[in-house]
Amino acid sequence: MSGLSGTTWYNEERLPYEGFGTSLAKSTSPEQDFPQWWPAALSRILFLLELPENWDSYGAKKINQQIAYHAAQILLEITRPGIPEPSIVPTVRGNLQFEWHTKGIDLEFEVKSSVLISVSFEDAVTGDEWEKDLDYNLIPLEDVIRQLVSRT
């Protein structure tokens, strides 16, 4: 198919691709290296989507489907081999939050929209500590995920 928004299609019958090898290069596709805990994480998200309005009896909002979708996508995008399973918790604003509390690292991020996430990071070993709102540049999150993986 042509460009995403384009409408032009091409006959690819004469463009066979027959690959018999197995992947030699490290895949860049999250589909090809789902973490083992991914099915459980997805089940958890589906469960949280079923929570009714006021699920905490203090007026919490129902989890927003679109936010949950983007949250799952972001989780896949930042995932790398060796990353431990996160806790997935609902927030009273109707968003989802992912949390890791392991090996001295406390990492939490709440997905607030398709492009906005709030990250909180604390490292008891190095003393590093910060909170940031991130949108299109997720490099700070990528860096702490790398630290998390290297320590587990």
Binding site: E31, I45, E142
Partner: peptide, 21 residues
């Protein structure tokens, strides 16, 4: 929906492989 972001691993296909709706 597609987003250009820094610091994420680049998917070969944008299909997320799951459906929540």
């Amino acid at each position: 929906a597609r987003f250009e972001k820094l610091g994420v691993r680049v998917p070969l296909s944008q299909k997320p492989g799951f459906q929540l709706f």
